[in-house]
Amino acid sequence: MRPFTYERALDAASAVRVAAETPGAKFIAGGTNLLDLMKLEIEQPARLIDIGKLPMAAIEDTPEGGLRIGSMATNSHVAADARVRSRYAVLTQAIVAGGSGQLRNKATTGGNLLQRTRCAYFYDTTKPCNKRQPGSGCGALEGLNRNSAIFGASHACIATHPSDMAVALAALDARVETLSPSGKVRAFPIIELHRLPGETPDVETHLIPGELITAVVLPPPPPGGQIYRKVRDRASYSAGLASVAVAGRNVALGAVAHKPWRAVEAEGALESGGSPAEAIAAELKGASDNGRNGFKINLVSRLVPVAIEAARQQGNGA
């Protein structure tokens, strides 16, 4: 690990101000992803601002009938919250499908959204990676790319976003609340948080330097059933090969793109009366593979209709 200056933030306003004035400053809260990457020197922050003890861990009802989840709320606390479990089951299911009990106890809501890809070529610092080292190339493109993206990838990067939680939040039409260094508070749909790789896969979100995620806001739950299904090589404690979150009429996919992938084509097809199988077929028209990840297209085409049917049955039963 490179040496860094460690500072503990006592309030959010000064945290974002300090972060903005120092190039290479990073917030740390749970640290489960950042420290992993710092040990490999993939992340080399000169200044670490510990926001873990800021009072932003509350989960509160909103006047609109939704929930406001503080960005410091741990994954475990969100998953265990009675309101989340009864009204946003897909979110609980997605969270407990990720990592391990130990990791979920430490990882925060904000940090989960900002975790970086698990692409092997990103992690191996001897390999080219445009995300880690812009301009160096993409090792995965013609490599052992079984885990790579089938939607929205570019010639510069085919990495996927690893979060399960974010997939559920995308299906739930969650919004992200942030605090800017200028003191400005803004909120926007979570689907606008992450970027597709394009030519600049190193730029992963639309956040400005120093901008801090303060909360995730859930609108009232959509009518209908909710379900999260994750497919992986081992039964637990491993990344997904593909996942799907269904919340009412909304469908989002995980482990298939550089961001949580809202399946708008599929949703549109369902809206116009298409069957679940037709819906996912419509979505997959936009999919492409790089060889070893081609199976994901088949996998998604089989997985998603089953999940949609299960959510419908649940919705009808409720």
Partner: peptide, 14 residues
């Protein structure tokens, strides 16, 4: 390709 225990998958309890 698998250089750690997150990618080389030994069985877990589940």
């Amino acid at each position: 390709i698998n250089q750690d225990l997150a990618s080389y998958l030994v069985p877990v309890q589940a």
